[in-house]
Amino acid sequence: MSTRHILLGLLAGGPSHGYDLKRRHDEHFPQARPLAYGQVYTTLQRLVRDSLAEVEGTDSDGGPERTLYRLTEEGSREVATWAGQVTPPAPFVTNEIFAKVVVAILTDGDPAAHLLAQRAAHMERMRELTALKTAPGSGLATVLSADYALNHLDADLRWMTTTQARLTTLTAQTVEVDRS
């Protein structure tokens, strides 16, 4: 997912300046990391360089001068193509937990204890997210973002549970592969 395309999408609604774009981004995606101003401006400059957006003008009603940006034809095409594209299912997921389990086996550590501790950390985060989504007054955007994260953490947990159940076999195989 790129900030570039999201900004293009936000611009599709009409000309806007950097500060507005940042504010709208943070409202629509409450669980994403808030955008930094600097990142917004460098991305906008790149969009102009690639002729996906252009400067509409500047206005300064009393305050500091602000640049208005708007989408070019090419920019609208680009954002439509991006939004229509199916997101490729990730073929391989970099799995740090698995790597740590294997290393723990190789270094005579305690992979079971590691998985248990990891489970506790995951559960802690899931409790935070659940509290966030059930807090009175949280909007649907928050609930859906929290749900997305919860489902991914849940998937991790299920993977950890089955891995825990197969640790003995995994240990044996890992040791054997390492020896040969």
């Binding site: 248990l116 899931m126 409790r127 059930t134 919860l150 849940d154 299920r158």
Partner: peptide, 22 residues
């Protein structure tokens, strides 16, 4: 058995083969 349901609780107690862990 559902972690998403368990996340509504204040804390989790895990049972393995009839013994509580954690």
């Amino acid at each position: 058995h559902d972690a998403q349901v368990a996340a509504y609780a204040d804390r989790e107690v895990r049972l393995q083969d009839g013994v509580t862990v954690g």
